Simulated scan of single mutants.
Amino acid sequence: MVVRVLFVCLGNICRSPMAEGMFRAKVDAAGLSDAIRIDSAATGNWNLGNPPHRGTQQVLTKHGIDYSQMRARLIDKDDFADFDYVIGMDGSNMQDLEALKPLESDVALKKLMDFAPDEGQHDVPDPYYTGNFAETERLVSAGCDGLLKAIREKFSL
């Protein structure tokens, strides 16, 4: 069985590609790259085809994570069937995802920070607006650690 995880934010150039890259690195380090498939997408369409934001590129580069193939894409209804987890970055993303989710879908819709309750944050702030990529990096890393732990426990990986 392959567990499929999709990270989603507004434009798919800051938070969700950062989460995709950081989670992939954590999955690879755990030796689980054959067991977990990872992608990211946007709820908005204005950055489609663009690479990650330069701030996200700097974070990923710092961690030795390749982002050269990452391009912003729009979430679509098939994603709700193709993925086991759809992970939003904030409450607004979650509202958009709930509205897009087909009624028949049983995908697990969660916020990334649901997996890092000790951080005391409910949302990952958008660094496109805040400029604080370091805070986003810290929160995304904590959320990814918690998500990987939850997946390993649920699926005995």
Results as ranks from 00 to 15, higher is better:
residue 85 Y to I: 02
residue 102 P to K: 09
residue 69 Q to F: 15
residue 86 V to S: 05
residue 84 D to F: 02
residue 98 E to G: 02
residue 113 M to W: 04
residue 138 R to H: 08
residue 96 D to L: 08
residue 128 Y to R: 08
residue 118 D to A: 12
residue 135 E to L: 15
residue 71 R to H: 11
residue 104 E to Y: 02
residue 104 E to C: 09
residue 75 I to Y: 02
residue 71 R to Y: 06
residue 112 L to Y: 08
residue 115 F to L: 03
residue 65 I to A: 07
residue 83 F to R: 03
residue 119 E to L: 04
residue 101 K to M: 01
residue 86 V to R: 00
residue 85 Y to S: 06
residue 103 L to T: 12
residue 101 K to Y: 00
residue 102 P to L: 10
residue 135 E to K: 15
residue 128 Y to H: 07
residue 138 R to Q: 15
residue 92 S to C: 06
residue 65 I to M: 12
residue 136 T to F: 10
residue 98 E to V: 13
residue 122 H to V: 05
residue 97 L to W: 00
residue 72 A to Y: 01
residue 111 K to C: 06
residue 81 A to K: 15
residue 72 A to G: 11
residue 89 M to G: 09
residue 127 P to M: 12
residue 80 F to G: 07
residue 94 M to K: 02
residue 126 D to G: 04
residue 125 P to A: 02
residue 108 A to M: 06
residue 91 G to F: 00
residue 79 D to K: 06
residue 99 A to K: 07
residue 120 G to C: 08
residue 99 A to M: 11
residue 127 P to T: 10
residue 67 Y to L: 14
residue 124 V to T: 11
residue 79 D to A: 10
residue 89 M to L: 12
residue 64 G to K: 04
residue 78 D to L: 15
residue 86 V to M: 03
residue 62 K to Q: 14
residue 103 L to F: 08
residue 117 P to A: 00
residue 70 M to E: 07
residue 91 G to C: 07
residue 80 F to M: 08
residue 62 K to H: 11
residue 79 D to N: 14
residue 136 T to L: 06
residue 121 Q to E: 13
residue 137 E to P: 13
residue 121 Q to A: 11
residue 87 I to H: 08
residue 63 H to I: 10
residue 106 D to Q: 15
residue 133 F to R: 05
residue 107 V to F: 05
residue 86 V to E: 09
residue 70 M to G: 03
residue 75 I to V: 10
residue 105 S to T: 05
residue 111 K to W: 01
residue 77 K to T: 14
residue 132 N to F: 03
residue 120 G to L: 03
residue 132 N to I: 09
residue 92 S to T: 12
residue 98 E to A: 13
residue 133 F to W: 12
residue 114 D to P: 10
residue 77 K to D: 06
residue 81 A to Q: 12
residue 72 A to V: 09
residue 82 D to R: 15
residue 62 K to I: 04
residue 83 F to M: 04
residue 126 D to E: 06
residue 87 I to K: 09
residue 93 N to L: 02
residue 78 D to K: 15
residue 123 D to W: 00
residue 111 K to M: 05
residue 85 Y to N: 09
residue 89 M to E: 03
residue 61 T to K: 15
residue 68 S to T: 13
residue 138 R to T: 13
residue 72 A to E: 10
